[in-house]
C-alpha cells in the first residue's frame, strides 16, 4: 500500500473514530484533521440515529452550560476599565495625535459645525471648561443645552492663537477635568442631561474618540481604534444608557425591551428596557452587531443605516432603537 492510500485509510478510520486509542494521536499528528468531506459522510451516518431527547435534558444542559460560563459576557471578554481611566487614556491619545500635526493639517477642515482642526480643538477647550464647572457643582453655570453653541465664544477667543498653544490649553484643561472627578457616583448636569460622573466621563471619552476620528479623516490618516478595555467601557455604558437615550430622543417605548448581542471582545449580551424607570421585559427585538461599530453609531460617526447588524424580531422597533442610540452623543 502506498503512502497516499495509507493516509486515506487512516483518515477514514479517524472520521469513524475507529482507530485504536493508542494510534489516534500519532495519526492526527501525521495527517492532521481528516478531510471535511469525510466529516460530512460521518455526520450523514449520524442522521440515522436522530432521536428526541428527554424533555428535561434541555434545561439541564442549558443550566450546566451556564454554570460553566455565565451568559452575557463574551468568551474572550476584556474587563472594562474605569470611565476615569478611559477618559485619561483618550486624552493622552488625542494629545499624541495633535503633537504629530503639521501646519497644513491644523488648518484642514475637520467638522461641519466647528470647522478646521484648530477650531475643533478650541471647541474642546470650551467643553473642558464647561465640564470643570459642572464637576465643581457651580450653580452659576447656566444650562447650555446646545453643545456646539456653548463653545462658540471659546472658538472665537482662540481664533488668533497658535494651534499648538490651543492644543496645550486643551490638554491642560482636560488634565484638570481628570483631576476634578471626585465622587464618581454623584449626579452632574451635563448640558440638559443629569448623569453620574462615570456616565459623563464615558460620554466625554466617546466625544474625544469621535473628534480624533474627525481629525484623522481630515488629514488622511487611519481613524483611531480604542483599546478593547475602553471599548468595553463605552459599550457597557451605552447599554446602560439606552433607556435614557430613547427618552431623550422622544421615542421611549414603555413595556418593551431590546436584546443586544454585541460581538467582539468588548461585546456581551444585554436585555435593555426601552424606556427609563421600567424593568427589562422579554425582548421584542434582538440586534446582533459588532460592539465597536455600535459605539461608532453612539458617538455619531456611523449612521444607523450604515451599521452592519442582524435584526431579529420587530424590525421597526430595532430601527427605532438604533436611531436612538446616538441621542446622547455630544459633538
Amino acid at each position: 500500500m502506498n503512502a497516499t492510500s495509507s493516509d486515506d485509510e487512516t483518515a477514514a478510520l479517524l472520521a469513524l473514530d475507529a482507530l485504536l486509542p493508542s494510534e489516534q494521536a500519532d495519526a492526527e499528528l501525521r495527517i492532521g484533521m481528516f478531510p471535511a468531506d469525510l466529516a460530512d459522510v460521518a455526520a450523514l451516518l449520524a442522521e440515522g440515529t436522530v432521536t428526541d431527547p428527554p424533555p428535561e435534558l434541555r434545561s439541564a444542559t442549558l443550566s450546566c452550560a451556564a454554570s460553566r460560563r455565565p451568559p452575557g459576557r463574551p468568551v474572550d471578554a476584556v474587563q472594562p476599565c474605569e470611565p476615569a481611566l478611559a477618559f485619561d487614556r483618550t486624552v493622552e491619545d488625542l494629545n499624541h495625535l495633535l503633537g504629530t500635526l503639521n501646519d497644513a493639517e491644523w488648518n484642514a477642515s475637520a467638522h461641519a459645525e466647528h470647522g478646521r482642526v484648530r477650531d475643533l480643538i478650541a471647541h474642546l477647550v470650551g467643553v473642558e471648561r464647561l465640564v470643570l464647572r459642572w464637576l465643581d457643582s457651580d450653580d452659576s453655570v447656566p444650562d447650555l443645552p446646545d453643545h456646539v453653541a456653548a463653545t462658540r465664544p471659546v472658538i472665537a477667543e482662540l481664533a488668533d492663537t497658535n494651534p499648538r498653544e490651543i492644543a496645550r490649553q486643551w490638554y491642560d484643561e482636560a488634565r484638570r477635568v481628570a483631576a476634578a472627578v471626585g465622587t464618581r457616583s454623584r449626579a452632574v448636569v451635563f448640558h440638559d442631561i443629569t448623569v453620574s460622573v462615570d456616565q459623563l466621563l464615558a460620554m466625554r471619552t466617546g466625544e474625544l474618540w469621535a473628534h480624533a476620528i474627525d481629525i484623522c479623516q481630515a488629514v488622511g490618516r487611519t481613524p483611531p481604534q480604542l483599546d478593547p478595555e475602553r471599548m468595553a467601557t463605552l459599550s457597557t455604558e451605552l447599554m446602560a444608557d439606552v433607556p435614557l437615550a430613547m427618552a431623550y430622543r422622544g421615542t421611549p417605548v414603555p413595556g418593551r425591551a431590546a436584546r443586544f448581542v454585541l460581538t467582539g471582545p468588548a461585546g456581551g449580551t444585554y436585555t435593555v428596557p426601552l424606556s427609563p424607570q421600567t424593568q427589562a421585559a422579554d425582548p421584542d427585538v434582538t440586534i446582533i452587531t459588532d460592539a465597536a461599530s455600535l459605539c461608532r453609531v453612539a458617538v455619531g460617526r456611523l449612521r444607523p443605516d450604515q451599521l452592519e447588524a442582524a435584526i431579529d424580531g420587530d424590525r421597526e422597533l430595532g430601527d427605532l432603537v438604533l436611531a436612538g442610540i446616538g441621542a446622547l452623543a455630544r459633538d
Binding site: 452550560a65 451568559p71 452575557g72 468568551v75 448581542v261 460581538t263 467582539g264 461585546g267 449580551t269 446582533i288
Partner: peptide
Amino acid sequence: ERIRAGDDRAL
C-alpha cells in the same frame, strides 16, 4: 458569533 458574545438564547 452569538455564542461567543454570551447569548444563551443562541445556545
